[in-house]
Structure formats: C-alpha cells, structure tokens
Amino acid sequence: MFRAVISEAKEFKKVIDAASNLLDEICFEVNEEGIKARAMDPSHVALVSIDIPKEAFEEYEADVHDIGVDLEAFKKIMNRAKAKDKLILELDEEKNKLNVIFKGAATRKFALALYDVSSSNLQVPDIEYPNEILIKAGPFVDALKDADLVNDHVTLKVEDGKFIVYAKGDLNESETIFEEDSESIISMNIGENAKSTFNLEYLRDMTKAASSSDILKIYLGTDMPVKIEYDVAGANLTFLLAPRIES
C-alpha cells in the first residue's frame, strides 16, 4: 500500500514542475522511509534526483512500490491544485492507478494511469568539488536571466574568491559578480579558481522550482558537471548538468 498526505498541494506542485521541466516520465520508488526518484533527461545531459523523507508528509504509510507516471499528465493535474488544498496521493493497486486527491472547498479526485517505468537504480555520483557556493535563488536566477539576453549558454566561474555568472554573445556580454560579503551569498567554500560553461535553458529549468529566498547549493569545478541542490516543501532536489567543453 501507499498513501501520503501533503498539507500544501501547491508546494508539492513545485517538485513535479521541477522534474517535468527535464523529464517525460519518472519512477517514484516508495518505501516506509519516504519517496525517491532518480532519472536522466533523454539526452543524458542532466540528472534529476528527488528525495522526500516521510517526515515531509502530514501522514505517510507505504510498502515498497515503484510508481511510474507520465510527468506531463501529473503536472497538468497538479496545476489544478487550489491555494489551500491538501493533497492525498494513494496507490490503487487493483486499478493500477495513482489517485491524486485535492481536499479543499470540495474533494476532487483524479486517477493517474501508471506506466511501466522501471526504477533506474541510478545513483548521484559522489564527486569531490573544489568549490561550494550557497546563494539565494533569486539573485542567481536573475543572473541567468541577464545571461539569457546575450547567449544560450553561460559560464559559471570562481575567480579570486568571487562567484561570477558570465555570458558572451557575438556582440554583447553580461556579467554578474557575487562577492563573499554580498547579501546574495550565504557562504562560499572556495578551494581553487574554476570555470565551466553550461546550456542556459537547462540551468533555468533546474532552478525554476526554487522561490527567490530559497538557498541553492552550487558545486562547481573546471569543465565538470555542476551540481545544484535545494529544498522545496521538505523535499531535497539535486540536479547535475554536464558542461559544454571547448573542443
């Protein structure tokens, strides 16, 4: 069996939005400890990892199940959540559906078809990074929006103790500089200068679920995948994005 109650449906919607920006379908692995999901996007450029411990739920009860769903369909259903709705997720093993129930002014029930998405057994690789930056999501997303004006890729740099978001187009350039004492920065653990370039659209998608005051943990090296972690509604979201490398 699987049944979970989430006090704010709108918050859980952010988790589904974050995944659906990058993936078509996902397998939620549920057990008595909580829910987890790991998947790579179809081009294997990005990896999404979601961990929701049972403590994040108002009520939680589960045996071991793999629950595969189409994320576009799940996202459309979650878009129907009202501001104060509670969300109940329950597995109907007989009908092979995930019931998605909103409890607010009325009780509204959707039955979401399950797909045979096998659990991937993916692990987030344990990489050592020279630099770890804790930054408010709002200013970082703003820096990405600035970069978007000049090109479709962006360079993240650590240079002389500063974290820099830089983009260069054929004609124009943009640069946002975060110094350690800037109010956007929570902390910077800098080991060495580093520089990697990434597709901007992926980075935008990965940070879409974060509210502007949420804290992003950004792990950065040179010509290495960037790792971005943050928490939404008690869920931990981790993203890895492969860089563009000068050939």
Binding site: S43, V45, A46, L47, Q123, L240, A242, E246
Partner: peptide, 14 residues
C-alpha cells in the same frame, strides 16, 4: 562555444 558533453562522458552512472 564548445561541445555539449553528456553525463555518461564523466561517469558510469548506472
């Protein structure tokens, strides 16, 4: 700028 590489180029993730 450069070439988009995949995560498979870095890790054996599976």
């Amino acid at each position: 700028f450069g070439k988009q590489v995949t995560l498979d180029d870095f890790f054996k993730i599976n």
